[in-house]
């Protein structure tokens, strides 16, 4: 009995030493599968997204930020309207959706109509959203280790097939693949940042960066007072 205990201690000690000396970089494909699984099971999270690029027809959504408690969402988005940006607030609670624009208060609408502004539900949908897209990454490769907003991560680079990207960004009509990068903490299978680039909105090069935080923090998303 005592002998097994000693062996077990040795094993733990060795594991600790190996871990502290730096574990080997994780294999990319299993990490993406595990991360997809973990992110889809999150009870809540905060997201930010920002579009960059020189597109002649800039993306409708320039930047957005909000809380998600799947499938409910509360988000603020800046939309391109000609030369200026227009801020809209969106709430999705169950089957109901609400919108607040430049003037007036909250008004009730449907998720389908809300999608004309910013299809935030599609972005984080369990079937075709960003987290669901992770295992579809083609030829993923583990890159540099680094820190993203205080989290130790590995950078995973790969390509996303056009049909997967198209379900996230309907304007991305190119066939073939789009370069994608993920920043993942392999210890917790957490996706802290992701960046997608290519001809996302028109033929010119653009990119979208997503960042995530506040995993499983308590968030309440309730229907707003209308008017």
């Amino acid at each position: 009995m005592s002998r097994t205990l000693v062996d077990a201690r040795w094993l733990v000690a060795t594991a600790v030493i190996v871990a502290s000396c730096g574990s080997p970089p994780p294999a990319a494909a299993p990490l993406l599968d595990a991360t997809s699984h973990r992110m889809l099971l999150l009870g809540s999270f905060h997201f930010k997204l920002q579009a960059e690029g020189e597109a002649q027809h800039p993306p409708l959504v320039q930047d957005a930020e909000g809380d998600v408690r799947p499938p409910d969402v509360f988000a603020k988005a800046d939309l391109h309207q000609g030369e200026v940006l227009l801020e809209v607030d969106l709430i999705v609670v169950g089957p109901a959706a609400y919108l607040k624009s430049f003037t007036g208060g909250w008004q009730q609408t449907s998720p389908a109509q809300l999608a004309h502004y910013f299809d935030v539900s599609a972005l984080f949908s369990p079937d075709a959203g960003l987290f669901a897209a992770l295992p579809h990454t083609v030829s993923p490769a583990t890159g540099k280790q680094g820190s993203v907003s205080g989290h130790s991560t590995y950078q995973i680079s790969g390509q996303l097939p056009a049909d997967v990207v198209h379900s996230l960004l309907p304007l991305a009509a190119q066939t073939g693949t789009y370069p994608v990068q993920y920043w993942i903490d392999p210890a917790t299978n957490s996706l802290w940042q992701a960046s997608l680039s290519g001809p996302l909105f028109d033929a010119s090069h653009s990119s979208i960066t997503f960042s995530f935080s506040a995993f499983d923090h308590p968030v309440t998303i309730t229907p707003p007072a209308l008017g």
């Binding site: 919108l99 624009s101 003037t103 007036g104 208060g105 609408t109 109509q113």
Partner: peptide
């Protein structure tokens, strides 16, 4: 301006 438009609801695309 914001007082004047507090109840001016924009139509939602359809």
């Amino acid at each position: 301006f914001f007082q004047a438009t507090a109840h001016l609801q924009p139509p939602i695309p359809g």
